[in-house]
Design a protein around this nucleic acid. Structure first.
Length: 656
RNA sequence: GCCGGCAUAGCUCAACUGGUAGAGCAACCGCCUUGUAAGCGGUAGGUUGCGGGUUCGAGUCCUGCUGCCGGCACCA
């Protein structure tokens, strides 16, 4: 007789069971209907197979039914297994590798001589539905390592053999079977394939390197999405469709903000309205720097020797633009490089003249345009370009000032993101990479400081989630990355704070300390938006082009109904311009319906309709983007309220 | 850079298995003086991304390149 263990149920009740009792037994002991609906159980919050015995420890138990949010993970994981079975049934000789659950779905990586194409997806999907309909139970076995190795080797599953070998000694080698098909898997799984349901869809095929390493073979990855119900699936697909309408590349064209063309892969042609957005952002950031930073400007093109000194020529040569005189015969030929970073320039400025410890911290800012020869496959609209402007700054300070400077930067970043309405921000601390400079002691010290700062950042704001990215730091020091999401949830690094123990040393930068000795400053690289281009891309998507009044490229259109009101409309526009607003008039001989439609499409936040009536009464009729409602205001009122509303949030704070 | 896909007018798309490019919207020109998301009529617009090939004939088939899209890798 096995040992009796005590289980605590969600309602707080406590009951005794045999340690060999399974989740299924426990569900059955509660009610027949629960036993039928159960797909798994959780012991102290950890999901397990329903067929797993509860074991001797006992604890808090929850029976997981299919409609439990935690079941979604199982549905997706099971779907990945079924997809793998479908693929192997349809395309014999295909090797399976790994197939994890991801946000909104799952994927599975396959090795096959001939890669899959999108046309294969419906076929695989159909086979999956067949397998699900067979409703075979998932069963688990623990195999001896050697047997697993042997079986997979005999099947020609060489990637699986590698995975078996990678399982740490002492950990079980678990095999999950569904009918005749089986896979190495950590589990858990639901009871049978039928529980997956039919609310799934295969989304796309993509290449992916084995174990994420570009030195390895490229596998074919198939992505799928899976949900508990058809409604949820439809909702998700609908959300993706809606998100596509917010894509900054699409809105850039529709709103006439910018374009790209073949001759300039990865470089932006900013149109008038887009450039206004760009300048609005620069002006905002510049105001935020006022009083704390000194703005400078360093050259675009510098001799490559400077980049050799900085180390970039060695580390990043393949990503740099080389610049030289086009005349091959030129006698004074030198090799220059287009700057990929602003920091060496700022170090030169710092070095110009002797600095005292009393001068520190010195904060040099630059809206610095840099060029990087990014891999062709990395380019992505405004998000990843080859020429971009950073709202860059470098802080030269003492080690003691480091933590405080990081926190100050954090405040600046978070208040900026708040002004643009971001509600979800991830902050990552990236620690020492393999390829690095500086002693371990130095890294230990920096990482210790930054870990403390990260904790403080995490506490500072409820919109933030923090995490550590081990090994992701820059070669010269650890860093914080501030990550924002685009319309479809892709994450992009925007703000950053990077500690650098290396560059001051390389360039021999120093200050005179209290004791009249030369001392090396610590350097902090930081950016708030990161790249203005990327930040604008994110803003376009997050606002779906509906910018707040203070940021919109065209803030107001004054539209007439008939030409009788032309003079008055011009007067209204003049008054608004005088109040600092960006205004256009629309005096065309068109119906007001037509004008409203057109400016609504252009996402102008405010349309002021001025007809004969308004001209006589000296009023305006105000219509807001996204609303059908109209308000009649006196001209004075309208100017005052729009001017107030168009005040940027930082200036509003300063005024109050 | 790697894997897969795509490339026809400014935009969205059409042109059966190869038979010398067509529509809507936008643009331009007229008419309409109009009250809150498309008035009416007309005109113009393409060396089908670029280069080679197969063919009597290529937007369509083959091939090289370029760019873009989705991932992967990279991201100082």
């Amino acid at each position: 007789m096995a040992q009796a263990v005590s289980l605590i149920f969600p309602d707080g009740s406590r009951r005794e069971y045999d340690a060999v009792a399974t989740g299924a037994d426990i569900a059955a002991s509660i009610s027949k209907s629960l036993a039928k609906k159960a797909v798994a159980y959780a012991l102290d919050g950890t999901l397990r197979d329903l067929a797993d015995p509860i074991g001797e420890a006992g604890g808090r138990i929850e029976i997981i039914t299919r409609d439990d949010p935690r079941a979604l993970e199982l549905i997706r994981h099971d779907a990945a297994h079924v997809m793998a079975e479908a693929v192997q049934e349809l395309y014999p000789g295909t090797q399976v590798t790994i197939g994890p659950v991801i946000e909104n779905g799952f994927y599975y990586d396959f090795a096959r001589d001939e890669p899959f194409t999108p046309e294969d997806l419906p076929v695989i999907e159909k086979k999956m539905r067949e397998i699900i309909a067979r409703n075979k139970p998932f069963t688990k076995e623990v195999w001896p390592r050697e047997r697993a190795r042997q079986v997979f080797r005999d099947k020609g599953e060489f990637y699986k053999v590698e995975l078996v070998d990678a399982i740490p000694e002492g950990e079980d080698v678990k095999i999950y079977a569904q009918g005749d098909w089986f896979d190495l898997c950590r589990g858990p799984h639901m009871v049978s394939t039928g529980q997956i349901g039919n609310a799934f869809k295969l989304m796309k095929v993509a290449g992916a390197y084995w174990r994420g390493d570009s030195e390895n073979a490229m596998l074919t990855r198939i992505y799928g999405t899976a949900w508990a119900t058809q409604e949820q699936l439809d909702q998700y697909l609908h959300m993706l469709e809606e998100a596509e309408k917010r894509d900054h590349r699409r809105l850039g064209r529709e709103m006439d903000l910018f374009h790209f063309q073949e001759e300039g892969p990865g470089v932006v042609f900013w149109h008038a309205k887009g450039w206004r957005l760009f300048q609005n952002l620069v002006s905002y950031m510049r105001r935020r720097l006022d009083g704390t930073y000194e703005e400078v400007n360093a050259p675009q093109v510098l001799d490559h020797s400077l980049w050799q000194t900085s180390g970039h020529w060695g580390w990043y040569k393949e990503n740099m633009f080389k610049v030289e005189c086009a005349d091959e015969e030129a006698e004074d030929k030198r090799v220059f490089a287009l700057k990929p970073m602003n920091c060496p320039g700022h170090v030169q400025i710092f070095k110009h003249g002797l600095k005292s410890y009393r001068d520190l911290p010195i904060r040099l800012a630059e809206f610095g345009t840099v060029h990087r020869y990014e891999p062709s496959g990395a380019l992505h609209g405004l998000m990843r370009v080859r020429g971009f402007t950073q709202d860059d700054a470098h802080i030269f300070c003492t080690e003691e000032q480091l933590a405080e400077e990081c926190l100050k930067i954090n405040e600046l970043i978070l208040s900026t993101y708040a002004d643009f309405g971001f509600k979800e921000i991830k902050v990552f601390l990236s620690t020492r990479p393999e390829k690095r400079v500086g002693s371990d002691a130095l890294w230990d010290h920096a990482e210790e400081i930054m870990t403390g700062v990260l904790e403080e950042i995490g506490r500072s704001d409820s919109r933030i989630t923090t995490a550590i990215n081990p090994g992701d730091g820059a070669f010269y020091g650890p860093k914080f990355d501030y990550v924002l999401k685009d319309a479809i949830g892709r994450e992009w690094q925007c703000g950053t704070t990077q500690i650098d123990f290396n560059l001051p040393e390389r360039f021999g930068a120093f200050y005179i300390d209290r004791d009249s000795e030369k001392k090396q400053p610590v350097m902090i690289h930081r950016a708030i938006c990161g790249s203005m281009e990327r930040f604008l891309g994110i803003l376009i998507e997050n606002y779906a082009g509906h910018f707040p009044l203070w940021f919109a490229p065209v803030q107001v259109v004054v539209a007439t109904i008939t030409s009788d009101a032309d003079a008055y409309a011009c007067e209204v526009a003049g008054r608004l311009k005088a109040a600092g607003l960006t205004v256009e008039t629309d005096l065309r001989n068109e119906k007001i319906n037509y004008k409203v439609r057109e400016h609504s499409h252009a996402k102008v936040p405010v349309i002021l309709v001025c007809g004969k009536r308004e001209a006589e009464e000296r009023t305006v009729n105000m219509r807001r983007l996204g609303s059908r409602e109209q308000a009649s205001l006196s001209l004075e009122e309208a100017v005052a309220s729009l001017a107030g509303e168009a005040t940027p949030p930082d200036m509003r704070r300063a005024a109050s």
